[in-house]
Write a protein that binds this DNA or RNA. Sequence first.
DNA 1: CCTTCATACATAGGTTGTCTACATATAGGG
DNA 2: CCCTATATGTAGACAACCTATGTATGAAGG
Lengths: 111, 111
Amino acid sequence: MNPDALRGHMDALLLSVLEREPLHGYAIIEALQERSGGALNVPTGTVYPALRRLERIGYLSSEWATVGGRKRRTYRLTDSGRKQLEGERSAWRQFTTVIGGVLRADTTGTT
Amino acid sequence: MNPDALRGHMDALLLSVLEREPLHGYAIIEALQERSGGALNVPTGTVYPALRRLERIGYLSSEWATVGGRKRRTYRLTDSGRKQLEGERSAWRQFTTVIGGVLRADTTGTT
DNA sequence: CCTTCATACATAGGTTGTCTACATATAGGG
DNA sequence: CCCTATATGTAGACAACCTATGTATGAAGG
């Protein structure tokens, strides 16, 4: 998966995996792998800064927890983030429609 | 349309509009607008450098023409570019499948 | 004539998100 | 003791897209 292709869609992915339940960064990376059938291997250097950014914007909130001697920062969707996720989904649909339409370009039979 | 979303898909768009016939930069911009129903307004500062990049890579070739006193640089797909377009299309399908799958995440009824 | 708009190309510099590489730390198995 | 899995994080590189600006021609209108 070309890294550049992810540009601008990372937020939607992160918000989406957090929709059902709060998760910590490492678990988010695993969730993305699983849900994508292994296609999405997002490095920590991408995920952690992105999560912080989303929290700063107000789409996520976080709190520390210690599980089995290891510290985790667990992120959860805020109301604002849940609303944003809706927006991301509709933006995604529009995006795929527009780009897909240009790429298909079946305009063979113009006349 | 969020600019970042286009990242990594610009090449596919450009190659795609050049599939049927050679076009010059200005006409390419107009073609993208038309084919996207006005959704895609790609600035010249994006298109011209991108076309040069694609030519440098070998996906496009260009030649100058003068039409009505105005100079045009007309780009056409090379064989390599045509092959690349196929690759871009299949990459696009894979991309939408993967991201779309994660975004949907209808995994409401587990178990 | 002169202004304005559409056509047509081009680049310098800024922005920003993703990646690579590295650093740190604990738990558990061999 | 070492290695792996778990877990978080940052610094700096990179690349693509955008903004802003510059040039030049032709046609239309006043």
